[in-house]
Every structure is written in C-alpha cells, then in structure tokens.
C-alpha cells in the first residue's frame, strides 16, 4: 500500500515564538500551533482540512509543502522524508507539490502578465517548451490563450483564481495545496472554480488538500475530511460519514453553525 501513499505525516509538531510575551532579555516563549498531527493522504485523494481560525489548518498546509519547518515529527512525501530538508534540496522537489493561495489579487504579481506569472515556476524548474505549457495550463483552466498578455487587475476575481490554478498545475505536480481559495469569491464564481477543480482532479489525476472554513464546500469536493481544533485532529475520515454522523462534539458544533439557505433549519 505504501506506494499509493503520497503524504505520510506522523506526530507533527510546530510552534512559533510568542513575541507578545517575549521578555526584554532572553528567548520568547513558544506557542504550540500543531500538537502532534497524524495524517495519510493516498494518491488521487481529495482531502478537506477544516477548522476555525487558530485551528492550525493553514500552518499544517504550509508545513506539508515545507514553507514552514516543523519542530518534530515527520513528513514523508512520495516516500521521502522532507521534514527537515534544506531549501537547496527542496527546490527541485517543489515542482511536485504546488500551492493555490486564498487571495489571487495579492498572490499574483500585479506587474506581470498572466503569461509570465504562469511561466514563473516553469522557468525556475528548468522546464522545456515553456510557452506551449503556459498555453496548455490556460486551456485546462478554461481561460482563452489571449489572456497571456493581460494583467491581474484586468481580470475578474474568478478569472484571477483560475490563473492561480493554472500556475499551480503548470509544473504537473503530484500534489496541490489549496488554501481557502474560494472564500473571497462571489457564490457564482465560487461554484465555477469548484467545478473546475473537480474536473481537473478527474482529468489530471490530482491529489488535492483543500483547506477551508466552509464545510459545505468541503462536503461537495472532498472524499475525506479532517477536522482540526487548536492544533489537534478531532476527526479524520470519509466525508459523507463525517457529515452524516459526526463523532466529535466540535464537528457537530461546526455543522450546526452553518447557516443553510432554507427556512427549515431553525437556530434555537
């Protein structure tokens, strides 16, 4: 089975210095963000990671693609231990795991054209046929090729997020981390971007971790769901089962708090 596992995370711990409580001299105390996370992601899985603010969901995501270095525990990606790998050793691997960010306006360089934004990681990773690959990425996300010469501010929010997705899939990664990528969008473009992701997962066989605070979106997109609360895993299992019969009190609380667009659900 282990060759089917893309991520294997064991007892992952990560802390940040608590600068608000740093004494004048000496080291700042540490705040534990991740308190021993265990997680496995199989190839082709779409995993939802959900939790409130401060639950550690974004920190976990950033540790997975090694934008952050954990204190202890281990992260194995495609069987290789990347927990404490140096940046020079990580760089060639980065084309295998990519990220789509929450706010496309601030994660896309406003001074670069769409074409050069998507070409960025391709050039950095020494790909050949960069131009053809940029076109292909645009095709995949359903943007016309003439958008190559446009700038981010000329696009709508949904189109900008498509550019973010195109950049992430251009290097043909094994794994994509999507952190709250639809939370800034209107519901109509939200639905379009989610449909696009579903389609790309099918067509390109992507493995996806989808971080969100919105359980409705996770229910639609993900096969497995992990619920985090204050740096610990509350539940991690099949999405349908988790929604239909939540085991943890916190999961139930989260579900009850979502305002459903109907009048049948009444808040006591």
């Amino acid at each position: 089975m282990s060759d089917d596992v893309i991520y294997e995370i064991e007892n992952l711990r990560l802390s940040f210095p608590d600068m608000a409580h740093k004494p004048l001299f000496g080291a700042a105390p540490r705040i534990e963000i991740l308190k021993g996370i265990d997680m496995r992601i199989a190839r082709g899985d779409v995993v939802g990671i959900v939790g409130g603010s401060g639950s550690g969901k974004s920190t976990l995501g950033r540790a997975m693609i090694r934008l952050l270095e954990p204190d202890s525990g281990s992260i194995r990606f495609n069987g290789q231990d990347i927990t404490h790998l140096e940046e020079t050793a990580l760089r060639p691997m980065r084309r295998r795991f990519q990220m789509i960010f929450q706010d496309p306006m601030s994660s896309l360089n406003p001074r670069q054209t769409v074409g050069s934004i998507i070409a960025g990681p391709l050039k950095l990773q020494g790909f050949d046929r960069v131009s053809a690959r940029v076109d292909q990425a645009l095709d995949h996300v359903g943007l016309p090729r003439r958008f190559r010469s446009r700038y981010p501010h000329e696009l709508s929010g949904g189109q900008r997020q498509r550019v973010g997705i195109a950049r992430a899939i251009a290097t043909e990664p094994d794994f994509i981390l999507a952190d709250e990528i639809v939370s800034g969008l209107d519901v109509s473009s939200q639905a379009q971007v989610l449909n696009l992701l579903e389609q790309l997962v099918r067509e390109l066989g992507l493995t996806l971790a989808f971080i969100s605070h919105d359980l409705s979106v996770i229910r639609r997109l993900c096969q497995r769901t992990m619920v985090l609360y204050r740096g610990e895993v509350v539940e991690y299992r099949d999405t349908r089962a988790l929604f239909e019969a939540p085991e943890a009190e916190y999961t139930r609380e989260l579900l009850d708090a979502i305002p459903l667009p109907d009048l049948e659900q009444v808040w006591a």
């Binding site: 519901v187 109509s188 979502i258």
Partner: peptide
Amino acid sequence: AALLAATPKYTDPDASLTPV
C-alpha cells in the same frame, strides 16, 4: 433562483453550488 442554487448547502451537495 440561480443565486440560491449557487449557494453551498452541505445537506444537499449535488443540488447546490451550481454556477449561475
């Protein structure tokens, strides 16, 4: 109607989140 159909609803994942 389209806006309502586009609104996420976890109790009815297939019918919700339909693009306008």
